[in-house]
């Protein structure tokens, strides 16, 4: 088990891992510098910075934790413990342990993101609670728009560059686009699309819950955060047990 955690931690020593950590830690400073150049766009700069932070968390969660792979050809939901048809499925360790190791290895990412978040708040003169409010308020307009744009861009990129002109999209979009796309799938990228769908769903959920934020106390806010975290962990373990049953 320890060896597994050690193995998953290796990601932080690899070029991409190091690069992203350094970028995220520098993010507050970059944001502050940008603010200096464009002092009237404080909210926008902070939104973009938070968005980058969010994207980082999302991508590393995907790489570390979630990797949902929906294979339309086989009509099975494969909750793979890792991307790439992967070595971890061959080793004599239970999926629960594998997922736990991945969760633990994900902690440095969360710590780095948190540090960045705090520094951003510091540079934009917002306390922790104010930052939270800002996040949620921004989501109702600016970030939401940004996320949709990036997602569409991502799908277009995938369509024309990455996977050899194969279209990859969730079922609801297939219906819009037509069944001719359904013939061509690539598991890897479908796997990437699915978490995006989940994230968007979560965001919509947060947006609709927005009015509540104005009226609850900081304590209730923190409790809400804890509930969300616990739900994520529960999802994680659902992931593991579904994997063991449905593959």
């Amino acid at each position: 088990m320890l060896k597994l955690i050690k193995f998953k931690m290796k990601q932080y020593t690899r070029p991409i891992g190091l690069f992203s950590i350094i970028t995220i830690l520098c993010l507050p400073f970059l944001a502050r510098a940008t603010l200096f150049m464009f002092p009237y766009f404080s909210d926008w700069v902070l939104t973009v910075a938070l968005f980058i932070l969010g994207a980082y968390l999302y991508m590393s969660s995907y790489m570390n934790a979630f990797s949902l792979r929906i294979s339309f050809q086989t009509e099975q939901i494969n909750f793979m413990p890792d991307d790439a048809s992967n070595m971890l499925m061959h080793i004599p360790i239970s999926f629960k342990k594998i997922n736990l190791a991945r969760l633990i290895a994900h902690i440095p990412t969360i710590i780095v993101a948190f540090i960045s978040f705090v520094f951003l708040g510091f540079f934009f003169e917002k306390g922790f609670y104010e930052m939270e409010i800002f996040c949620l308020k921004s989501l109702n307009f600016r970030s939401y728009l940004l996320i949709i744009c990036v997602y569409v861009l991502y799908l277009l990129l995938v369509q024309f560059i990455i996977v050899d002109k194969k279209a990859i999209m969730p079922k609801f979009m297939q219906k819009i686009m037509g069944s001719s796309f359904i013939d061509y799938f690539d598991k890897e990228v479908v796997g990437a699309a699915a978490p995006a769908v989940i994230v968007i769903a979560l965001l919509i959920g947060i947006v609709t819950a927005l009015p509540i934020i104005e009226y609850i106390t900081p304590l209730q806010n923190y409790l809400l955060t804890i509930v969300v975290v616990l739900l994520s962990v529960a999802f994680f373990y659902l992931n593991a047990s579904l994997l063991e049953k449905s593959v």
Binding site: A84, S85, N86, M87, H90, I91, P92, I93, S94
Partner: peptide
């Protein structure tokens, strides 16, 4: 399952190694 993976050596016909 877990226990059989310890006594079975499977060689897939694709590259299953991590790309790093």
């Amino acid at each position: 399952g877990e226990k059989t993976k310890a006594i079975v050596a499977y060689l897939p016909d694709y590259n299953y190694f991590f790309d790093w």
